[in-house]
Simulated scan of single mutants.
Amino acid sequence: MLESGYLVMDYIGDSDVQMLSETWDEHRHQRDKRMNLFKGLSRIMLSLSRVPLPRIGSWTLDSNGALRLSNRPLTLRLHQLENGGIPTNISRSLTYSAADGYYLDLLSCHDSRIRNQPNSISDADDGRAQMARLTMMKALLPYFSNREYREGPFLYRFTDLHPSNIFVNSQWNVKFVIDLEWACSLPAETFRPPYWLTGRSVDDLIGEHLEDFRE
């Protein structure tokens, strides 16, 4: 491992591109632009996941300049918890050979948030409700994860792929993607298009809206 931190940077100076978020609400129902966007995102996602990886984790660059899949799967959410002083108990060198352990550790992060974030609970009823939901999620986890993919394949993907991190031209052809530091290999069953392509929040993906997302 390198003894000091490093940062790879680039500059987007193309005047013909802008963040997708600037025109998303206005043009997201235009079929031609949506098709261009979907093609671009699909190409990126499939390219990244082309080679299955043996573990859940993130790439590191060692002192010899070699890439190693030896760092924990670092996502923006994990980073936000730790920046807020919430212990995640997921050490830097921890990678996963099976999906179950990763899922359980993610749920444990939410347990830790309840214990360590001063404003995590608004009142007694809210506290009981949050703990009940976490308990149910742990109990029901085997029914929502696919045993066939428990030990792989694990696919490399961006975990912070939102409209402000995607730069497109006037026809919504994807030209640049930024904030790549949150990319990591994750279970294959988590490989899916971003939910925001539906124009709805995660909590709104129920009934016919969920079916539209699946299609």
Rank of each mutant, 00 (worst) to 15 (best):
Y6V: 05
Y6Q: 05
L7G: 00
L7I: 14
L7E: 13
V8M: 13
M9N: 10
M9C: 10
M9Q: 15
D10Q: 15
Y11W: 07
Y11C: 12
I12C: 07
D14E: 09
S15W: 03
S15D: 05
S15V: 06
D16Q: 12
D16L: 05
V17Q: 01
V17E: 03
Q18N: 14
Q18I: 04
M19Q: 15
L20K: 04
S21C: 08
S21F: 02
S21P: 02
S21Y: 12
E22D: 07
E22T: 14
E22G: 01
T23Q: 04
W24R: 04
D25P: 00
E26A: 08
E26M: 10
E26I: 12
H27V: 05
H29G: 05
H29K: 14
Q30A: 02
Q30R: 15
R31E: 15
D32I: 07
K33T: 11
K33H: 12
K33M: 14
K33S: 05
R34Y: 13
M35G: 00
L37E: 11
L37C: 09
K39V: 05
K39H: 14
G40F: 09
G40N: 07
L41A: 12
L41T: 10
L41P: 01
S42L: 09
R43V: 09
R43Q: 13
I44W: 11
I44K: 10
I44E: 07
M45E: 05
L46E: 13
S47I: 00
S47T: 10
S47P: 00
L48K: 01
L48H: 02
L48I: 02
S49Q: 06
R50G: 10
R50Q: 15
V51H: 11
P54H: 02
R55V: 14
G57C: 07
G57E: 03
S58W: 05
S58C: 06
S58I: 00
W59N: 10
W59I: 14
T60E: 07
D62V: 02
S63P: 01
S63W: 15
S63A: 13
N64D: 14
N64M: 11
N64Y: 10
A66E: 12
A66Y: 08
A66G: 06
L67P: 08
L67D: 09
R68H: 09
L69I: 04
S70K: 07
S70V: 00
S70N: 10
S70R: 04
N71A: 12
N71Q: 10
N71H: 12
N71C: 03
R72V: 03
P73E: 08
L74G: 01
L74D: 05
L74I: 08
L74T: 14
L74C: 00
L74F: 03
T75D: 10
L76P: 00
R77H: 11
R77K: 13
H79E: 14
H79L: 12
Q80G: 00
L81W: 11
L81D: 06
E82I: 13
G84W: 01
